[in-house]
């Protein structure tokens, strides 16, 4: 393990954790502009988090230890996930321990704990949210795996940094299979992060909420960690998308510290564009009925599998 590798690793984890609320704030800001509202400050999520961290936590009487542990597990899983996604540099020592499939497993762990905690207290809304989350999850996961498999087959490895390197250095050309999987990945990103066609992150209307329903029983630092965790999840998904579909600009181990210095502003630029795109999608589309969500995710799965098949047939 080189010192540069360790530095990249540390920088990525800390930057991801610090930048995640800002990215969420940026998406919210763009959304507000597009909807002719006056936008909240970019720092609004930080204010929210610091307020929550200062408050005293209130726990339900029926809450088990699992309920208290879950926020730390969810947040921890997201930070570890951020550590193995090559967002700035590809020379990540930790990524040797976990490949793309393990990453999907990590995200699944967070989901399982979140859902269990939501069911733990025994309120109707928590259970409802948890069930819906599992419904979305079990459909989105295979689609995400398929997307990763296509990228893995093109670059012949399941390790995310090597995939990003392989895709960045491939010959310029049209890759229909990658185009299909990119669309599939976008659909999965929207569904997994409780964005608008599947869930509305701003709603507290009981009948439609999924993610918010699971957090209803949480307060103070637990809630803060959960919200921070979901902001981090959004950032992680965006970074997976960059690693697979716009891998140019991530620093390689050979590029040294200079490459890393160049990679950071590029990543900020990519995130900026991603935020605008996400806000645009959310403004232009209407929320689906919950019963239509499986169709939405079936489309994602279909596109990802088609990408895989087309890659096998055409070999490009």
């Amino acid at each position: 393990m080189t010192s540069l590798g360790a530095a990249t690793q540390l920088l990525e984890m800390i930057c991801a954790a610090i930048a995640a609320p800002a990215f969420l704030g940026w998406v919210n800001q763009c959304r507000a502009w597009l909807q002719n509202r006056s936008a909240p400050s970019l720092l609004q999520p930080y204010y929210g988090l610091s307020k929550l961290f200062r408050k005293d936590a209130v726990l339900a009487e029926s809450a088990s230890p699992l309920f208290r542990v879950a926020p730390y597990v969810v947040f921890g899983a997201m930070v570890v996930a951020a550590a193995i996604i090559p967002s700035m540099g590809t020379g990540l020592p930790l990524s040797m321990a976990a490949d793309g499939i393990a990453l999907v497993g990590l995200l699944a762990t967070a989901r399982v704990f979140l859902s269990l905690a939501a069911m733990d207290v025994g309120t109707a809304f928590g259970t409802l949210g948890a069930r819906r989350e599992m419904m979305v999850g079990f459909l989105a996961e295979p689609a995400l795996l398929m997307v990763l498999f296509v990228a893995a087959m093109i670059s012949k490895t399941t390790s995310l940094p090597l995939i990003a390197e392989g895709l960045a250095t491939r010959s310029i050309g049209l890759y229909p299979s990658l185009a299909f999987t990119a669309v599939a990945f976008l659909l999965v990103l929207l569904a997994e992060n409780a964005r608008i066609p599947v869930d509305n992150p701003a709603t507290h209307l009981e009948l439609t909420m999924i993610h918010e329903a699971m957090l209803l029983e949480y307060s103070a630092r637990h809630l803060a960690l959960m919200e921070w965790g979901s902001a981090l999840k959004l950032l992680n998904y965006a970074c997976i998308g960059f690693a697979l579909f716009v891998p140019w600009g991530t620093s390689t181990e050979a590029a040294g510290p200079a490459g890393l210095l160049l990679a950071v502003p590029l990543l900020v630029l990519k995130l900026g564009f991603a935020g605008v795109g996400l806000a645009l999608i959310e403004t232009l589309s209407a929320k689906l009925r919950v019963f239509r969500a499986p169709e939405f995710l079936a489309t994602a799965f279909l596109l990802a599998v088609l990408g895989l098949l087309v890659h096998l047939l055409l070999g490009t």
Partner: peptide
């Protein structure tokens, strides 16, 4: 690397499938 016209043909084919 395939030639550009063949790549375009392949893209057309996949779009037909879609």
């Amino acid at each position: 690397a395939l030639s550009i016209d063949l790549q375009l043909l392949n893209a057309c084919a996949t779009l037909l499938l879609l």
